[in-house]
Design a protein around this nucleic acid. Structure first.
Lengths: 210, 210
DNA sequence: TTTACGTATAACAATTTTGTTAAATAGAAT
DNA sequence: ATTCTATTTAACAAAATTGTTATACGTAAA
């Protein structure tokens, strides 16, 4: 109930555009189809957003904030022990992906296709993420030196976390037919997968008994 | 030196098409650009392959064999102990991805966009993969019951393996700017990442000391 | 009421992209 | 030499996609 500020048709177009762009990407989406799905003539689309490009920008802008959010979430809550922090990081990152399951594939593709367009995003992200890496690495190093966990490069750990959490969504339609009944009950699978990813990451940093 | 059987221009077109399609996908690729990159007139492209669609089919056909190969590789060599089998599976799967770094993103996207087109692939894969899952699950269950490893659903394990191995390539251009100097030396990073993924998976199945 | 403004429609224009064709060329087979 | 075939070229046609414009409509302010 918070998006009624803008004219109704403008909003309808934005919603249809988001669906189309997220699923089909910039190249695959068609302005005529977007207009059709929005239930407006396709001239209206150009009236409100001038070009496909500008409409696309709106969708990217709306969604790229979420991406930064997910990356930060994956670093966990600093007010916790290292293990707890990482555990909460995996969990909340996973939850954010579940809430935006189409977003990763979309953005990964668009960034590969037109990297120039996303330079500005990186400048925002780089320092925030860099700082978080630094902090977390310090914590990890300290915990490792006290024998609480195994030493590890947090960037590698981070890459593992987002790999485990994101890939099943990027690859969903690929994996589904191969996994038998594992994925059929979506709720069940999501819960199991979340637990599995947490387990995998925690075991990775767990101190090996000698 | 083994592809000179076909006429030279046909081969040139195929090579250019593979580059374009793998990077830009079906929607993003342009037949004119492919022809240009191949150094032939774009009428030649239609002369040899009639339609963009048919040219695309050729590229898909050529590459989808590799995909089946990677999945099978990820199951490891059955003539080994379970730990060794899984370790070798992760390693050789990783190597296959390194050898075809653009393929995963390409196929994942195309399958999502036009699932119908890939039904035939699944029918081949499903039984092979299903059988491999069954065999491996038996081995794992047995090893687990003897206290050698932790019990686990091999499909979950498989999903983790391909997540860890594939995602960094799918997300390369996204991750690069965020990872600082971690990725700059590609050879070094690949070796480190391979070791990291093996370690992560082996720890996942390692029997916990009590 | 009338003016002004944002919104809507329908028809059209421009551009991009894919696909075709007729005629020219070159080389091998008869 | 002639015929036949595969290849090439250049110009063109068709389709799909994006973008524009002239005109109409409705509503709120003057």
């Amino acid at each position: 109930m918070n998006e009624t500020k803008k004219s109704n048709t403008e909003q309808l177009i934005l919603e249809a555009a988001e669906q189309e762009f997220l699923v089909k990407g910039y190249d695959g989406a068609r302005t005529t189809i977007i207009a059709e799905k929005a239930g407006v003539t396709h001239a209206m689309l150009h009236y409100y957003f001038r070009t496909k490009e500008q409409l696309f920008e709106r969708i990217v802008a709306k969604n790229s904030a979420v991406v930064a959010q997910t990356m930060i979430a994956a670093m966990g809550d600093p007010n916790m022990s290292v293990q707890e922090r990482i555990k909460s990081g995996v969990a909340s990152h996973f939850d954010l992906i579940v809430a935006n399951p189409q977003l990763p594939r979309f953005l990964l593709n668009e960034i590969i296709l037109r990297p120039e367009r996303y330079h500005m995003l990186y400048e925002n992200w780089q320092e925030t993420i860099g700082q978080l890496f630094e902090d977390l690495q310090n914590e990890v190093d300290q915990a490792a030196s006290q024998g609480e966990i195994e030493p590890i490069d947090v960037r590698m750990l981070f890459l593992s976390i987002i790999s485990l959490n994101v890939f099943p969504f990027v690859a969903q339609s690929f994996a589904e037919p191969l996994m038998g009944n594992l994925i059929t009950d979506r709720e069940k699978f999501l819960a199991a997968r979340k637990a599995e990813n947490i387990e995998t990451i925690l075991r990775r940093i767990k101190k090996q008994s000698i």
